[in-house]
């Protein structure tokens, strides 16, 4: 799996994503069920950090955030 596929899977898959939006260094994701998010797998996929607040999961991936977000949207 490439990075985008790994991140999408670790976020609980396409069905779990309400919205995904890139910021300068992070993916801001709104999910249906944050308990389906696998933080370890996100880090294994290259995330520097994961910040969860309710249904919003921020995955810190660095400046490639917009490229990764586009790749993830292509997979959805």
């Amino acid at each position: 799996m490439d990075k985008a596929e790994q991140i999408l899977a670790a976020l609980g898959g396409t069905d779990n994503i309400v919205e995904i939006e890139p910021c300068a260094t992070r993916l801001r994701t709104e999910v249906h069920n944050s308990s389906l998010v696998d933080e370890k797998a996100l880090k294994a996929a290259g995330a520097f950090g994961v910040i969860t607040s309710g249904s919003v999961v921020q995955v810190v991936v660095g400046p490639e955030a917009d490229t990764i977000a586009t790749d993830i949207e292509d997979l959805m």
Partner: peptide, 26 residues
């Protein structure tokens, strides 16, 4: 990278500097 609220400049030797204008301004 140039977003309205943030930009990244990379120097000729590869150093990247992010300037982020405000928090949650995306």
């Amino acid at each position: 990278k140039l977003h309205p609220h943030a930009f990244i400049i990379r120097t000729s030797d590869g150093a990247g500097i992010l300037t982020h204008l405000g928090i949650d301004t995306v």
